[in-house]
Amino acid sequence: MSLFSNALEIVRDNWLLLLVGQYPNGPLGGIAATLILSVLGIGLAFPLSVLVALARLSHRAWLRLPALALVYAVRGVPLLMIIFWVYFMFPLLLGVSVPGYATMLCTLVLYEGAFLSEVVRAGIEALPRGQMDAARALGHGYGGAMRFVILPQALYNMLPSILSQFVSTIKDTTLGYVINVPELTFAANQINNRLLTKPFEVFLILALTYYAVCFSLTRLAGWLESSIAARRAGPAPVQLVAAQ
């Protein structure tokens, strides 16, 4: 019992730090930073992933091979390595210091974009071949067929997977801690460093917070999935006639 009352006390004393970090006296942090990083990360990774997926499906080798290399490289390397790589290499290459937020965002976009591109590619390839045939037979070019026929279906079908990639992204932002991005884990660690004697309580709060956010999103993905399945099956024609 004292564990929970301790935890509650810590939350009561530090809720603002957990929520927004040191803002407005310092950089925005806490859950707010975690969510902003995740939303921006997946939001920018998504268009990238569509481009990478289309490049991977292209019959032009100069488009396909670099996309393939990117996906394989990112899938074969731990996220932490990429974070370090971007963190140390970007300033060297660009000659300017890159803030931790930007480093983390770039890394997330690259990493999640590569993973998401596999989701998008699977979604495109899962559609019956007849869809592309029908579009081409009507005179649509490859681009038009993709834009008006293939992608709208593939992306819609992939919504649940995209949402679960978003959940992964939220969890991946914790690694921003190692390059001092003041997100939620960073805030929890600040609290732990101040209290020193209650690490279990602090990290319990942290775990529960991530769990609450990720679990509700996972549930949302599950609900989306079943409602998409229902919509795809469509109401029986007979019922529909009766309803009108």
């Binding site: 019956p128 007849g130 869809q131 029908a134 579009a135 037979a137 026929v149 279906q153 795809r232």
Partner: peptide, 10 residues
Amino acid sequence: FVFQSFNLFP
């Protein structure tokens, strides 16, 4: 062109 499997855009 009309296909055996209709291929309407769902």
